[in-house]
């Protein structure tokens, strides 16, 4: 066989045209704007960067963003697993409706869910009035909004994975004397673990970048419920604030790309494990 060609010959037309348009559109909408961010940050010296980052309010927003996002992703991982399990394994009235509803956080604009959550968890709200402590305007409120927007990720990545498990594996496990819990922890859970981790990481990444739904229930109180997205916005309105905004943005970007990389590594690990098993 010849060396792999840059483009394999094909009788189909239109490669040049569609490729040209794809690259042009991609550059105009994504690549050039993204490079703009790096140009702005290149004016930033390391000491300026560290000074911006060591600001008390910025540090607090970092801690809050990562902590609330992590807790929300853990909650979603736990309940998401149960929901995915129930939707794949059991039949019950209303199953299809629940299944369709899982995507609601994707379909519903964050401003809409944001004001609804703020209302429900306010002191006089349907749920908020039952708690002795305030939820709206606190870290708990922020976390609740992040649970809402991250929910579909764990469920939707787990569902196909749970469906693929061979029923025979479970029968073998049972006939070898394992009880149901052992079968679950030793056969089923390891099989879906890569999907589980991926869903968790996606929910975590999404939560870190969220803004709209947190705005209303959290209130973006500086030093208390202000998350990183909001810090970027408020810096932007300050005099010469765009450099500080870009510094915070770079940290957030690094976090999201780091998580994305981790997801890819998990997939790679899962594929290799699968290949070995065969």
């Amino acid at each position: 066989m010849a060396r792999p060609a840059l483009l394999q010959r094909s009788v189909l037309p239109g490669f040049g045209l569609t490729m040209g348009f794809t690259v042009l559109y991609l550059s105009l909408i994504v690549l050039i704007p993204l490079s703009g961010l790096f140009i702005v940050t290149s004016h930033l010296s390391l000491s300026d960067f560290l000074q911006i980052m060591s600001n008390d309010l910025v540090k607090k927003s970092f801690t809050l963003t990562f902590r609330a996002s992590f807790v929300a992703a853990v909650v979603n991982a736990f309940f998401g697993f149960i929901v995915a399990w129930v939707l794949v394994r059991y039949w019950f009235p209303g199953r299809r409706i629940i299944d369709a509803m899982v995507d609601l956080p994707f379909a519903m604009p964050t401003a809409v869910s944001g004001i609804a959550l703020a209302q429900i968890y306010s002191e006089h709200g349907w749920l908020g009035s039952h708690f002795s402590f305030p939820i709206r305007g606190t870290e708990i409120g922020v976390t609740i909004a992040l649970i809402f927007i991250g929910m579909p990720f764990v469920i939707r990545t787990l569902q196909p994975s749970l469906q693929e498990i061979d029923k025979e594996l479970e029968e073998v496990s049972a006939s070898l004397g394992a009880n149901r819990w052992q079968t679950f922890t030793k056969v089923i859970f390891p099989a879906v673990l890569p999907a589980f981790i991926t869903g968790f990481a996606m929910a975590f990444a999404r939560a870190i970048g969220e803004y709209g739904s947190v705005l209303f229930i959290g209130g973006m109180i500086p030093g208390k419920t202000e998350i990183m997205s909001s810090v970027i916005l408020s810096k932007l309105y300050e005099e010469n604030g765009h450099i500080a905004a870009s510094a915070v943005a770079i940290v957030m970007l690094a976090a999201s790309f780091g998580i994305l990389l981790a997801i890819n590594l998990v997939q790679l690990w899962a594929n290799r494990r699968f290949a070995n098993a065969q």
């Binding site: 394999q8 094909s10 993204l34 961010l37 803004y211 997205s229 957030m252």
Partner: peptide
Amino acid sequence: FQFIGKSFLLSLIDIPFAISPVIAGLLFVF
């Protein structure tokens, strides 16, 4: 079509998924 650099192009297309909306807005402000 089959060409070299396809998976690289695919990851470039995915970039907006990884970028927080506020940062997306920020890019255009810059």
